[in-house]
Design a binder for these strands. Sequence first.
DNA 1: TAACCCATGTAACCTGTTACATGATTAA
DNA 2: TTAATCATGTAACAGGTTACATGGGTTA
Lengths: 183, 183
Amino acid sequence: MSLAHVILVSLTTCPKSGYDLAKEFDGSVGFFWRATHQQIYRELSRLEEQNWVNAQPIPQEGRPDKKLYSLTEQGTQALQSWILQPSELSPVKEEILVKLYAGFLVPIEPLIAELKRHHQAHQERLLTYQEIERQYFANPATLSPEGRFRYLTLRRGLRYQQDWVGWCEEAIALLETPVLTLK
Amino acid sequence: MSLAHVILVSLTTCPKSGYDLAKEFDGSVGFFWRATHQQIYRELSRLEEQNWVNAQPIPQEGRPDKKLYSLTEQGTQALQSWILQPSELSPVKEEILVKLYAGFLVPIEPLIAELKRHHQAHQERLLTYQEIERQYFANPATLSPEGRFRYLTLRRGLRYQQDWVGWCEEAIALLETPVLTLK
DNA sequence: TAACCCATGTAACCTGTTACATGATTAA
DNA sequence: TTAATCATGTAACAGGTTACATGGGTTA
C-alpha cells in the first residue's frame, strides 16, 4: 500500500500529472522509491476513487488532455497519519551479494570486473548527490523546515553511495589478494 | 526470476527442505534476500519441473514427509551462467525516507522518536554481524575461497548497518537543532 | 494448557514488470 | 527522417503478501 503514499508525498509540493509523477520517480523521489508509469496511472485512479486526490482536466491541443492531480483534505490527513505510524526496516535485496555468496563457483576475473563496474556506477551517483548538496544545501544550519527534511534524505543517499564505493574497494582488494596455499 | 537463483545459491552448501530454506531466509541469506515459506514452496515446485533441483523424500513419523532438495547438474550450470551476468544496482525502497521527505507535515517529536528506534535497531543488527565477524572471520587473510566470498557479503552487511547508525545520529542531531527564526 | 517448533501446502489478492497501443510536436 | 518528448492508457503475466488449513511433538 506504499506506492500510494509516495505519490501523495510527491503531490505535497505541487499538483502534478501522471506523466510528471513518472518523471519524478526517475529523479528526486526516485532515490527512495521506484515506479513505472503504468503503476502510477493505476494507483492514481484508485486514489481518485478514494478521494485522496482529485484531478483537474487541462485541455490540450495535439496531445491527450492532461490531468493535474492535487491532494484533497482527506488525502492530506491520510498522509499525515501514515507518516506518524512506525516503519519497519526495509528488507535488503541485493542481487550482486547473492551472486558473490556463491562466487567460488565461477572464475574470479569477471567478478572483479563486475565489482569495478559497480564501483564506478556508485561513484557517479555520489558525484550527482554531492553536486546537489553543494548547490542547494551549502549551509544546513539555515534551512527551512521543508529544506531540512529534504536535506536529511539527500544525506542518506550520499552516505549510501559513499559506503558502497568504500565496500567495492575493500572487496576488490580482498579478491585480488592471492589465496594462501598450504604447503 | 531471482528468488529461484537465491534458492539455488542456498542449496550450494548442502541439500535442504523447504522448511530449512525458509529458516535460512531469516538468517544468513536473509541479509540480502527475503522470502516467505509460501514463495519458497511455490518456487521449489517450479525448479523441480525445470530439473534444476531434485527432491529426495524422507519419510518421517508424526509429521509430514520431508523433501530434501539438491542441485542438479543443470541447476549448477544455470546458476554459474547467472552469476556471470552483470547485475543492476538494486533499487532503493525506504519507507522511512519517504516519510521524512514530507516530515514537515507532522510534529517533529514523534519523528525523532522513530529515528531513535531505527538507530537502536540498526545498532543491534550491527552487533550481531560484528559477533559473527569475530567468531568466524578473525583472520581474513587465511580464508578459503568460499570463506572469502562469505566474508565479503558479511562486510557489506556490517558497513550497511554502521552507515545507518551514523546517519540516524546525524539526522537526530539536525532535527534537534532549533530552526533559525528570522527577526 | 498454551505457545512454539517441525513440515507442508492451497487460495485469494495485491504489487510490479513487460509488451502493446496511439499520436502530435520538436530537436538532431 | 529518426528519435525523443509529451501524455495517456489496456492487458497479460510474474512476484510477493496474507489468510487459511493440518497435525503431532516439545518446552514453559
